[in-house]
């Protein structure tokens, strides 16, 4: 990874934010009535931050990441990447998309080395870097296998490795650990954190898992559906860091954040008058309730 100047999150820096949404609306072109996918999005992500986005299915999480990558243009408001309103693909983006995009005709090594190859890194160097990266996601023994020979979770790790190998400025991840078992998920979270720590890599991380969001994020953006919008931005500065996941989850601050975010995500489930008036809860309601009562964190 490039220069390793540690940036303390939230240190009142005056530099331009990496990502800035201002009253952003996105509508997909389509027939008939055009329903916007997301409306009134205001979000600023400064350098080095790790932002988690949670929300029910269809609320526009992937849409936001697409805008960040430059693959999708906003239809209203302004989006800025590193202070500029771009209208072409953004530079220095690493995007682990929700849909798998490994090349079936390349091996694990070839897939991980692909972005290096496209950017003219010499064969020897890219093989070395790719192999190193593969080893660090636990696929050191699988270098010459093809994606079809791997499990879903392994393929996701290949995608992660391919994204990290280029040392991007902005890391976009759309449910990258969705297919992993609980243990591996925690390991991958820790791996990701260790990779990011001490760099000024900015990350936007979409997940369905509130625990995951609270464990690895600096802040959590909670979205609500139909049309998608941001309901709450919860900064996690008061959470204890550098403790084990178990200890973290037992801290009172954690419980407070979790309760607050649940209230937002579960919408009209709350009966204390906050009454977040959204429709997403009509199909999430029961499910979220049971999940909440048994301490689960799946929210869609």
């Amino acid at each position: 990874m490039g220069d390793a100047s540690p940036v303390e999150p939230g240190t009142g820096n005056t530099e331009v934010p990496v990502v800035e949404f201002k009253d952003v609306t996105v509508s997909y072109p389509g027939k008939g009535v055009i329903r916007p996918a997301v409306v009134d999005v205001n979000l600023t992500v400064s350098k080095g931050r790790f932002v988690c986005v949670v929300g029910p299915s269809g609320c526009g999480k992937s849409t936001l990441l697409h805008v960040c990558s430059g693959l999708l243009k906003v239809t209203g408001g302004t989006f800025r990447y590193q202070g500029k309103e771009w209208n072409k693909l953004h530079q220095g983006i690493g995007y682990v998309t929700q849909r798998e995009t490994l090349l079936p005709w390349k091996t694990v090594l070839g897939n991980i080395a692909l972005p290096l190859k496209l950017n003219g890194v010499s064969r020897a160097e890219r093989r070395e870097r790719a192999a190193e990266m593969a080893a660090s996601v636990g696929l050191g023994d699988w270098l010459n296998r093809y994606p079809r020979e791997l499990s879903g979770g392994m393929r996701q790790r290949v995608q992660l490795a391919r994204t990290l190998v280029t040392a991007p400025t902005l890391l976009l991840m759309d449910e990258p650990f969705g297919a992993l078992d609980a243990v591996l998920r925690v390991r991958m979270q820790e791996f990701l954190k260790s990779r990011i720590e001490g760099t000024d890599l900015t990350t936007i991380f979409v997940t369905h898992d509130l625990t995951e969001a609270l464990t690895i994020g600096d802040e959590v953006v909670a979205m609500a559906g139909a049309p998608g919008r941001i309901d709450q931005i919860d900064k996690l500065e008061d959470l204890p860091r550098g403790v084990s996941p178990v200890e973290l989850r037992q801290s009172p601050a954690y419980a407070a954040h979790e309760a607050r975010l649940w209230k937002t995500i579960a919408g009209n489930l709350s009966d204390d008058g906050v009454a977040l008036s959204h429709s997403a809860s009509e199909h999430d309601g029961d499910h979220a309730m049971t999940a909440a009562t048994r301490g689960g964190r799946e929210i869609s």
């Binding site: 990558s69 693959l71 995007y95 995009t101 090349l103 005709w105 692909l114 972005p115 496209l118 950017n119």
Partner: peptide, 25 residues
């Protein structure tokens, strides 16, 4: 696959690289 194409473009592939690295195979 549009997703593959998008990924190639995000990784900074040139038109020629998209042709030889994606379309041809």
């Amino acid at each position: 696959d549009r997703n593959l194409l998008d990924q190639f473009r995000l990784m900074g592939a040139s038109q020629r690289q998209i042709l030889t690295g994606l379309y041809l195979p």
